[in-house]
Design a protein around this nucleic acid. Structure first.
Lengths: 269, 269
DNA sequence: CGAAAGGGTTCGCTGAGTGAAACGCTGGCC
DNA sequence: GGCCAGCGTTTCACTCAGCGAACCCTTTCG
């Protein structure tokens, strides 16, 4: 008989984990993926990827046309059910529309997740598509308007985490030292307004303001972004601040603690 | 020894299927669920539900605060990646905003899935919240404006399916016989406009128009809905039709076949 | 033609997953 | 107080769902 170090499931990953590895392959803008690529990107044997993908298709989580897979509508349905973004969206949208109406620049709504902003909603200016960030994507906290607005009201540990995650210079204007960032955050708390003057990307400027719950915790943030050439953040700062305050008041007590606290980890398993 | 018909996994459901059974528990407006309820609703043994839910929490698919579970942000992220709704949304939103601006009534965007409409996007009128349908939910094709607009351009088999799914009377105005419905659909094709005059719910009226791809397939539909008391569908019919046509043209060839064809079922497994 | 890469299938092995049962805790009820 | 019902959690012996190396068939490309 052969010498068998034939181990099943060499990494300790469960079926479930693998399934979501597959779904994550679609993260980077890939809309349809073939089996081989799927397996490669998810680091799974072809046979395994095939089997799991097949199951996901049966569950209508993936769809399949020809030999290509794409994310299924059922995922969209489940995704829309996630409570916190939905509620926020509902409460903030009217104000976002007002902001858009009065500026015709791109309006964003985001929440903190770990050391990143997760973009929940946006109204994109038709004239500056480059400025807009896709919903459901993330960006670092330290170099975005939304991020800094959220960070300014977060407690010490979170700020430390964000700094430790690394302050990579994205442009010559990015704040890349902890003191710089901390100073900026203090300023934001004073005025209620966060600026991003080409710190994330050259040519893009942004004003943001945090949405705060009744206990002073930052639940989300609103921002307006536009091309530096034509967009004057100081002019709209007050409007953004007002909108954020309005949302805070609208949602009122219903959202106490709805913010992005770190999820309670389950027992090790 | 005991007589053992001790069968493992008594229904033939895989871990994956079970996991999504759990996620489906959150379908009916429940935002947070305890373990016992979760197990009961998903028809799983408590221990199994516990184990799987625990894994999902580790994967950040579920979140847990105290002893209650809720859908995790990662699901939201994945859900936003689903291509077809996203592209549609992107293309249709500007026109939806125009419609809202000129009517101040609720605007909906939906696609067909099976014999139902899946609501993809909406702009809700602030004055008539009752009229608005939540994004990510479904309604039957036969008794909604969006549904009939989609059905009118669908092929024979789909219409038959929709009829066979049952024409339940939801109000006294619901079309409940196949000939009635077929007649209405022919009318819709002629005019490009679908009406729902309190067929789904008393007091709610709606005009809709289909978004058609270059091959004549219905990809989605737009509608405006309002309270019968103040909303005159005839006045806005032309605007809805125009908006739908504009979206069709905007998306142009990029969406050929992006519509909600039935997903290809995988081999039986 | 052969080589490479794609999708799909086979099959014997085994540990990941199973669920009945027991456990400790809390809160309501008599 | 004592009791019970319901909750979340843990245990454990059993076993089949899941595994993946190897293989097959096409298509593509030089």
């Amino acid at each position: 008989m052969w010498h068998t170090d034939h181990v099943q499931n060499r990494d300790g990953a469960s079926v479930l984990a693998r399934a979501f590895q597959l779904l994550d392959v679609f993260a980077d803008n890939r809309t349809t993926v073939g089996l081989a690529e799927l397996a490669r990107a998810a680091c799974l044997p072809k046979a395994t990827a095939y089997r799991i993908a097949g199951q996901l298709v049966n569950l209508e989580i993936l769809e399949r046309s020809g030999n290509r897979y794409r994310l299924g509508l059922r995922l969209f349905e489940i995704g829309t059910r996630v409570t916190s973004p939905r509620r926020l969206r509902e409460a903030a949208l009217p104000y976002m529309e007002d902001l858009y109406e009065s500026t015709h620049e791109t309006v964003h709504l985001g929440i903190r997740e770990g050391t990143e902003v997760l973009y929940i909603e946006r109204i994109a200016a038709r004239l500056a598509p480059r400025v807009a960030t896709a919903i459901g994507t993330r960006k670092p906290l330290y170099c975005t308007g939304l991020g800094k607005a959220l960070l300014a009201y977060s407690n010490r540990e979170i700020v430390t985490m964000a700094i430790e995650a690394g302050l990579r210079p994205r442009t010559p204007h990015t704040l890349i030292t902890a003191p710089q960032l901390r100073l900026a955050l203090r300023q934001i708390v004073k005025t209620g307004i966060a600026y991003d003057r080409e710190e994330y990307a050259l040519g893009v400027t942004c004003v943001a303001s945090a949405i705060i719950d009744s206990r002073g915790q930052p639940v989300a943030a609103l921002s307006i972004a536009g091309p530096t050439t034509r967009f004057d953040p100081d002019r709209t700062a007050a409007a953004v601040r007002t909108a954020a305050l309005s949302v805070s008041r609208t949602m009122g007590p219903q959202l106490a603690g709805l913010g992005s606290r770190e999820p309670t980890r389950a027992t090790s398993l």
